[in-house]
């Protein structure tokens, strides 16, 4: 048995006391089973129904269907009317998670209640149940008014409501991750990958068939070529070295900027945005870096000749041996 919090018990005891004209203490004692109930009404069955609730967190909880249970009244009361319990199946629910719905119970109408015999409701027409039923309860669950409090009772009928339990209208499965639009890796990723790889392979083979890799004279430590150039990816650095004191250029640039500075980028840039328009500063800095490194490298490769002097490739030729075999301007 669930422990019902004291304040809720109290609240429903008050309602009961009001309805039956007894004291609150009495009602409370009755509810706790410490004294015999005042009203000799048949205890209605408690029926709990499970309403499917959609699993998706964003979808508002499904229409809660308060189930109004009507007890057959005493002998004089005409045959009970079947109240249609509308079951609303949320169409989109992928994983229906059971949610307990507050169950409202209605006490059977009492003897002195004028029996609503006038209303001829036939069993054949359960659809019409909305039409004044014996106890003028609104048929359960017109989709909008979902709170049990709004049930409209006939004023002259004494009814009590009893709170059985309180359940938050929430799926029991908590969807913490946003649903992501995914596709099968095979074939949607692997096919484009395969095609890219084949394209790259074809490009590399054709390139290698056309361009001969350089092989100069055998290494000779006694003959220094002029200029002596590093591999192209270090030529920006070599170019920078020629401007500044080597101690600064040779160490600060590769080590500080390169290794430490680059690795630290995610820890420096704490802006969580990844939309380009919201990280203009970062993009500007990186673009400056790329442009600077690119310019230095191009100068180093194409515009530096003997003695590291400025040369124009279209006038003096290219002083870069890696390109020698296939671009020659002289």
């Amino acid at each position: 048995m669930v422990d019902i919090p004291e304040h809720l018990l109290l609240r429903s005891a008050e309602a009961r006391a009001k309805a039956l004209g007894i004291s609150v203490e009495q009602a409370l004692a009755e509810m706790k089973g410490e004294s015999t109930p005042t009203v000799v009404a048949e205890e209605p069955e408690v029926i709990e129904i499970d309403t499917p609730a959609p699993a998706k967190a964003e979808v508002p909880a499904p229409v809660e269907t308060p189930v109004t249970e009507e007890e057959p009244a005493k002998a004089e009361v005409p045959a009970p009317v079947e109240t249609p319990v509308t079951e609303e199946e949320p169409a989109k629910a992928e994983v229906p998670a059971p949610v307990e719905t507050p169950v409202t119970e209605e006490e059977p109408a009492k003897a002195e209640v004028p029996a609503p015999v006038e209303t001829p409701v036939t069993e054949e027409e359960p659809a019409k149940a909305e039409v004044p039923a014996p106890v003028k309860a609104k048929a359960p669950a017109p989709a909008k008014d979902d709170s049990p409090e709004e049930v409209d009772f006939a004023p002259e009928v004494k009814v009590t409501q009893r709170l059985l339990t309180v359940v938050k209208a929430k799926p029991i499965q908590k969807a913490s991750a946003e649903p992501v639009d995914k596709v099968n890796t095979w074939p949607h990723l692997m096919l484009p990958e395969f095609i890219s790889l084949m394209a790259m392979m074809a490009f590399l083979i054709i390139l290698s068939a056309i361009l001969q890799a350089p092989l100069l004279e055998e290494a000779n430590p006694n003959i220094t070529p002029n200029p002596a150039k590093a591999p192209w990816y270090f030529l920006g650095l070599q170019e920078a070295l020629s401007y500044w004191d080597p101690q600064i250029a040779g160490v600060m640039i590769p080590l500080v900027i390169g290794l430490i500075g680059f690795a630290a980028i995610p820890y420096i840039d704490r802006n969580p945005e990844n939309n380009p328009s919201k990280r203009k500063y970062a993009i500007m800095m990186f673009t400056f870096f790329l442009a600077g490194a690119g310019t230095l490298t191009i100068i180093g490769v194409l515009f530096r000749g003997p003695g590291w002097n400025w040369t124009y490739p279209w006038i003096d030729g290219i002083w870069f041996d890696d390109l020698l075999d296939w671009i020659y301007f002289e």
Binding site: L215, E217, A219, T224, P225, A228, K229, A230, F234
Partner: peptide, 13 residues
């Protein structure tokens, strides 16, 4: 490859 290009590029590096 141990040619002039190789040895001097590496020396510069």
């Amino acid at each position: 490859p141990w040619d002039q290009l190789a040895i001097w590029a590496v020396t510069v590096g």
